[in-house]
Design a protein around this nucleic acid. Structure first.
Lengths: 235, 235
DNA sequence: CCGTATTTGTCCGTATGTATG
DNA sequence: ACATACATACGGACAAATACG
């Protein structure tokens, strides 16, 4: 929270609402706030050293973007994503990623191709070392790089919004070395298709790769799902 | 605004913020608020008979969903969408619509097929009568029906969010009879592919159809674009 | 079943920053 | 360049609804 304090002290261009929004989003994504948990307005306000106004404004925004979930006279909760909806999120993510890769195949430049190949190599090394954490981080960088190189702001924005929502899912077991190897092999194939300028193939492979994430998620949830009070967001 | 009054009078389950959100969204989509226009908090609060609190909370949500645009110490504006971003929105819309049609091809039932064919026939009639307004309305119903029949909540939600944003574009000249006929011909092809269970083809046709909307929009903007102060939304 | 404490929903006042003459 | 008017940003207080004992 000292971060927020300094942010407030140094702020000139940003509003408290924005800072609080970022902070709540960070807490949710970091796991400080778990799915289903209620957000106490005045407690959070006291903790961040602000009044309830900015808190309320910030939560409205987060509700709209799908991270939180508001029920009248009860408060806002960290959104609980039902399994069927999680599956749908993976679907949309897959088609957007496929589109991005197809687009990238038509406009990639050698330097970008080299950067992506380098990331794949580093992921291989991480797998060899059994370093799952590094692999996870590199994997994120790899996808980020693809999103950036494709130079399609809206696709990137849509994709990242979906990614944030999937973070609400209870992150399952770390991928085994075998799975990581399989996933990185798919990376290699996608980049090969992009390098060859074969947009159609890049798209298909990218979609399959993204669906792999959905499959891995489906595989690794054998616990019984628990439900929290879900409210309808006003469309 | 009397609608708001009655909504307030009868409300039990909804909050003022939600009502105001819906109202602002309606005003923007109806054209009561044009792109670039600033929203005066206290004026709107007085007009709706509420205080400024709910107004502020509502606008934060709309900012997050892309309809409004906030700049510090200056207020919120109806979002002005630059041409390049509008083009991107059409792109993402196209891939989502393609996905939906491909999915529909795998699960459509005869009754749904009949309903869609009926809508196409009605659109033909509207074109014959030169009734552009009816065609526009039927066209919306047609796409809505496809979204519903595909039974993919998240894809529908994503698609509709993008549609709302494109409503911010200055809606250009009504389509000529020729263009409407061409568009409805594409509808017919899409449905034929869906009826044949050919998901791949349905997807391709649907994407091309959606891109047609982008092309028509590009064609019909020969006026010089004017820009308003655009602020960065905190990612 | 009722009373109390807590929390949310709403409103209003004040300070600060921006635009304009 | 300065002063004035105005709009937003934030904080605090009151009322209503909910949860708990």
């Amino acid at each position: 929270m000292s971060d927020v304090m300094t942010a407030i002290a140094q702020r000139r261009t940003q509003t408290l609402t924005g800072i609080v929004q970022d902070e709540i989003e960070r807490m949710v994504l970091a796991g400080d706030l778990v799915a289903g948990e209620r957000i106490n307005e005045q407690a959070l306000a006291a903790r961040l050293g602000v009044s309830r106004g900015p808190i309320r404004e910030a939560t409205r925004g987060l509700v709209r973007s799908g991270l939180l979930n508001s029920v009248v006279n009860l408060g806002v909760f960290v959104r609980q994503i039902p399994d069927d909806e999680a599956s749908e999120i993976y679907d949309v993510r897959a088609v957007v990623f496929g589109f991005v890769c197809q687009r990238l195949a038509a406009r990639i430049v050698p330097a970008q191709l080299e950067a992506l190949s380098e990331l794949i190599a580093e992921m291989d090394e991480a797998i060899g070392r059994g370093d799952g954490a590094s692999y996870y981080r590199l994997n994120l960088s790899f996808h980020d790089a693809i999103l950036d190189f494709a130079a399609h702001g809206r696709a990137k924005q849509t994709y990242e919004a979906l990614i944030k929502e999937t973070h609400l899912l209870r992150q399952s077991a770390l991928a085994s070395a075998e799975r990581m190897r399989e996933s990185n092999g798919e990376h290699r194939e996608i980049i090969a298709a992009i390098a060859a300028g074969d947009g159609e193939r890049a798209r298909i492979l990218a979609e399959q790769h993204a669906h792999g994430g959905k499959r891995r998620w489906l595989d690794s949830r054998e616990e019984a799902p628990r439900q929290e009070p879900e409210a309808r967001n006003s469309a």
